[in-house]
Design a protein around this nucleic acid. Structure first.
Lengths: 207, 207, 207, 207
DNA sequence: GATGAATGAGTATTCATTCAT
DNA sequence: CATGAATGAATACTCATTCAT
């Protein structure tokens, strides 16, 4: 039980200011890329002085890392929540796809940063970040693998390497959702979600 | 008939020098990212003076663009060659996966740049590039869709949207090959290629 | 009524710093010429960091332009003040020559830049400046012509084209004052001023 | 007696090439200023390779100096020729003005360089040049002073300091001719020449 | 905490000059 | 002499970061 009420107005303000700064940074970073955004620009957009920005984040990298980790946490928590439900396998997989689609639809900005980091395309803001994000990602994959394993045990999914199944699901969701993001009018959201499920289950469902 | 022989030693040297510069740039960019590499660094690694570098590429962006386009061309040509063969559908798909795997195995460095660009993660080296690369990518997808269509017509693949099938194949190959790249010892190359094919065909083969 | 008092210490400092930078730039530019002075040199002489210089002037050209315009303004204002006095014509002309002599004596440095610009010898810091300075110059000449016209009307100066008289006065002052500047010990200031007046009036006085 | 005929074709070519290079340089320098013209640009305009340019002039400064001195020589020789004629004073002065006007009309390009150098506005291409040009200029002034002196002796010009008269004539010619150059349609060439003579003689003619 | 002026290391780019062919 | 590829010192300008108020 956390003591939420204990935050004074001062502390509330601080948190709000921090959020405003991160929001400004997210907008700019996702739009122009890490190196094409200056601290002054972020401070300006957040309507704070440059010195104030540095009171909250000790340097640019720190700000970036805080931002990425915050978003990665949200992302992984959302998926993790779904994967840890004790539902039947097919429901879990369906929910997973839907949850991921939700995230893609709602946080395009953050996604660009996330994929820049995880896809090795990261215009590496030095090391360190990789490790932390990687860990989150690996945990999530682990859960996905468990889900697959459970599905196989329960004879819902066919025999096979559950790791490969997880990889396949990842590939299909990313691919379909990216395509949809780039050209949202072409195919409906529901259709895409449906297709992912179908493609995956065609390949992995037990007969 | 192209007159290849007509290149004087001078011109041969120039081409070689250009290649050396691009090679140095590729190494550095893929390792540290566009903004974390200086022109001096590239010149140094290529063992040329900074001025010489600028004789070949009018500025940093131009060098980057030349590099990306050269690699993207190679990549797409390789896949395009496979897809335009008049073989039977399954062979083409198998060859496509194998060719893509080859590329992943051989040009990790270039791939990082390529995905940075196509995955929207591009830490935008200004505009212009997007368009050109995008076009190459779209053409390739178009060919892939045609292949699928032909497979459906010939009753090799089951009824369905050939575009979705192409997206699925893209997703599966990228996902499996990325995983394999990150952890090559864990699963063999052949096993991965095999898995991709299986997963895809399970979902798309006509019964 | 202007509110001069409203400047905070912060703002006062800023203005002083700006003046210091411009002073350093004037010294160096007039001594060595625009292209032979680096921004670092100016910053160094003004005892500021290079970045600070760029906070005040967005680039080298901008700094140069600010400098030239400031000096040209001073120069033209001084002459304009004299010419707009409602004195009798001969007094105005005498004052004009004296004022111009004062300026030559006091601001050799600025003069070199000014003549570089107005004499077409400008080693053109791109366009734009020409126009602004030209306008100031033309206005001043216009006033000079009016003075001549008035002198003619009042029968103080002889009949003739007042524009030509203005040109003649300009020529005589520049020529004498330049000579004097280059070799100040040879002939006294007063003697030169006297000679200019004499030469001019010999040519233009009504009999 | 110089041996002019002895120039072989080789040597003739060399001279022609040199002239072509200097002509290209004059065009560019007077148009864009010393520092805004590159040696490559000059070589390009003269249609020679950069190395060839350096065969003729050991560096950029040397080329500039050669150019300026050549033009200054022409300029001073033209005036000197007039001033050394044993005509009567008024004729000499008239010829001098006419000759100077001719030069202004014919070689605007060179003039800009010349005045940049002599007016102290010179964006000083290092030292050295000043001295040589200065000497030419002083010699010419000396001749002008002699002419004035002779005029006074012959009672054509009134009593007074011949040096000041020379300065006055210089001032009037420069001023009128500059104005005319800048706005040639406004007043005719003849009118200007006439005005200079009038103004000067009004001030200096013996009564 | 908040401010924003000042700092200066770092980087892209230019261009005079050389020299092997 | 002619060529033009190669050189690298020099310079304008940016931006993360600090600190006195």
């Amino acid at each position: 039980m956390m003591e939420k009420k204990k935050l004074s107005r001062r502390e509330m303000d601080k948190l709000r200011h921090r959020r405003q700064m991160l929001a400004a940074a997210l907008d700019l970073f996702s739009l122009k890329g890490y190196h094409n955004v200056s601290m002054h620009e972020i401070a300006g957009k957040a309507e704070f002085a440059i010195g104030t920005l540095y009171k909250f984040f000790k340097n640019k990298e720190d700000l970036y890392k805080a931002l990425i980790m915050e978003k990665a946490d949200e992302y992984h928590r959302a998926l993790s929540d779904v994967l840890s439900k004790e539902n039947d396998t097919l429901a879990v997989i369906g929910d997973y796809i839907a949850a991921k689609a939700q995230i893609f639809a709602n946080s395009v900005a953050a996604l660009r940063l996330y994929f820049a980091e995880t896809r090795g395309a990261s215009f590496n803001i030095k090391a360190g970040l990789d490790q932390d994000i990687r860990k989150l990602y690996d945990e999530m994959v682990e859960q996905l693998v468990s889900t697959m394993k459970r599905g196989i045990d329960r004879k819902v999914l066919k025999e096979g390497d559950p790791y490969y199944m997880a990889v396949a699901l990842e590939g299909l969701t990313n691919s379909f959702l990216f395509c949809w993001l780039e050209d949202p009018k072409h195919h409906s959201y529901e259709e895409n979600v449906q297709m992912i499920k179908e493609m995956f289950l065609n390949g992995c469902l037990a007969k």
